[in-house]
Nucleic acid binder design. Structure first.
Lengths: 250, 250
DNA sequence: CGAGCCGTTGATAGTCATCAAAATGAGTGG
DNA sequence: CCACTCATTTTGATGACTATCAACGGCTCG
C-alpha cells in the first residue's frame, strides 16, 4: 500500500464496516484526487448547488448545516477526519444543505462521477457506501430524538459523548480531547442559544461531569456523563472492537 | 406487468427516482414475498432486533420511533404506502429504532437477504436503494431543523405540509386529506406535548390556515400554510413532474 | 350502553430565550 | 514586544413559550 495515502483513513473506515477486496481498495486508491488545504469557515458545499466533487476530510473538522427562513442555523452533522463529506449527495442532484469547515483542515476532492461509476461497477463499493450513509442516517435519527425529547443538559452531554466516542473509534483521541467548536456552534447543534449552552457547560463542570480549560475537555466520570446524556453507543453502529478494554470511552 | 402487483407502488416509486431496466424490475417483482394485514399498533421492527425481513408498506401508515431513557417517545419518520420500511436496516445488523403501524394496513415482507443479493448483483438496484435512503436522510436533516430551530406553530405547519406533499406525490390525496395520526403522535413527531399541539392546531384553524372536521384536514390557503411552516419542498427531492399544474400543493 | 381513547380547556410553573454588557483570550500590526 | 481589535466566553435581569397537572366532553367500538 502506498504509505500514508491521503484516503487511507477513509478507506480504513469503509473497510471496518464491510471488508473490501483488495481490488476494490486499489480502485479507490487509484481515483484521481486533488488535495486542498482549507481555512476555517470555508464552504465545501452550499445548499442548492449541484455537487461535482466529492470531498473526503483528511484532517480538521467540518459540519453540515441548514438555515431557516428567519435566519437561524441548525447544525445537522459533524464531520471528522476520514468522513466523506459528499456521500450524502452521491445520487442526489442538488444539495439540500451546506457543509462548512469548522476548523482549518485538509480535504481530498474526488470527482463525483468517478465515485458513482465505482459504486455501480463494483457492487461491494456500492454496498459499503450504502452502509456508510445508513449509519449517518442512524445518527440523524438520534439527533432528532436529542433535540426533540431531551432537555438542555442532556442534549449537550449527549453531543459530547457522541463526539468523543466517534473520535476515539478512529484513534483520534486519548483521554481528554480538544473540542473543535465554539459554544455558539454547540448551541446550533443542540437547538439552544449560546448563552444557555454556556450555563449548562458550567453546570456540568460544577457537577464534576466534565473538566475544561479553554476548549480542552476531559471526562472525569465517563459513566455519569453518559447517563446525564442518556447516551448509548448502539446507534453509531461501530464495528465490534476486540479492544474495548483499552478504550477510555467503553 | 402483473396488474396490481403488491409491490407496484414501491417499484414505481423507485423507478421515478432512478429509471430501472425492465430486467431489474422483473427481478424485484420476482422476489418471493409474504403479504400480511396488520392492526394499528403492530410492530414491524423493534429497536435492538436483528432484521430478517424487509417489509414494504402496501397500504396504511407507519412510523419510526425511538424512546429515551426516561420513557418519552420521539417519532422519527412517517412511512406512507409504497415506502420500504426496512431499507434503513438493509446493511445494518441490528435495528437502532422501532417501526410501528400507525393505522391498520398491509405489508409485503421480502427476505432481507434476497434484497441484499439483488442490490449486490444488480448495481442499478443498489443505486436506487442508495438514492432512496439518501432522500430519507435528507428528510431527517429537515426534521432536525424542525425540532431544533422552529417554534411550535412552525413545526406543526411544517409537518402538515410535508405530509401532504409526500402523499400527493404518490397520488394518495386530492384536496384535503385524512390525517392518520392522533394529536399525541403529532406531538411526538414535533417534540411537543399533546396539549400544546391541540392549542396550536386550534390556532392554525382560527387563522384560516387549516380546516378540520375530526381528522380530516384541508388547507384553504396553501401558500400561507407553507409560509407559516417555513416549508420548501426541495429537501424531499421529488422528481420533477411535468404536471405541477394539476397539483393542489405545488 | 358502558368503556376507553381522544380531544379540549383552564391554571400554574419551569425551562430556556432575549437583551445587554463586561471580561477574557487570540491574532495582528506597528 | 506591546497595543489594539475582534471573536468568544461569561454574567445578570427579565420575559416568552411550552410543559405540567387536572378535569371534562365527545366519539367509537365492542
Amino acid at each position: 500500500m502506498t504509505p500514508q495515502h491521503p484516503l487511507e483513513r477513509f478507506i480504513w473506515e469503509l473497510n471496518s464496516h464491510r471488508p473490501l477486496a483488495d481490488a476494490d481498495c486499489q480502485a479507490l486508491l487509484g481515483l484521481p484526487l486533488c488535495i486542498r488545504k482549507l481555512d476555517h469557515g470555508t464552504y465545501l458545499i452550499r445548499e442548492g448547488a449541484l455537487p461535482v466533487t466529492c470531498s473526503v476530510l483528511i484532517d480538521g473538522f467540518a459540519f453540515r448545516q441548514k438555515v431557516t427562513g428567519d435566519g437561524s442555523r441548525q447544525i445537522i452533522a459533524l464531520c471528522i477526519p476520514g468522513d466523506a463529506v459528499d456521500l450524502q449527495n452521491l445520487f442526489l442532484n442538488v444539495s439540500d444543505h451546506s457543509v462548512q469547515m469548522m476548523t482549518r483542515g485538509t480535504v481530498a476532492d474526488l470527482k463525483r462521477s468517478d465515485l458513482q461509476d465505482l459504486a455501480l461497477s463494483r457492487p461491494a463499493v456500492g454496498a459499503v457506501i450504502n452502509k456508510t450513509t445508513l449509519i449517518e442516517a442512524s445518527i440523524l435519527r438520534e439527533w432528532v430524538v436529542n433535540v426533540g425529547r431531551r432537555d438542555a443538559r442532556e442534549r449537550i452531554a449527549h453531543v459530547l459523548c457522541e463526539f468523543a466516542v466517534r473520535l476515539e473509534a478512529r484513534g483520534l483521541v486519548s483521554g481528554g480531547f480538544e473540542l473543535p467548536m465554539t459554544q455558539e456552534q454547540l448551541a446550533d447543534t443542540t437547538g439552544l442559544t449560546p448563552v444557555h449552552v454556556n450555563r449548562v457547560l458550567k453546570g456540568l463542570e460544577a457537577d464534576g461531569l466534565i473538566t475544561r480549560q479553554r476548549r480542552h475537555i476531559q471526562f472525569p466520570d465517563w459513566r455519569a456523563l453518559q447517563q446525564a446524556g442518556d447516551f448509548s453507543r448502539h446507534y453509531l453502529h461501530l464495528p465490534d472492537e476486540g479492544g474495548v478494554e483499552h478504550s477510555s470511552f467503553a
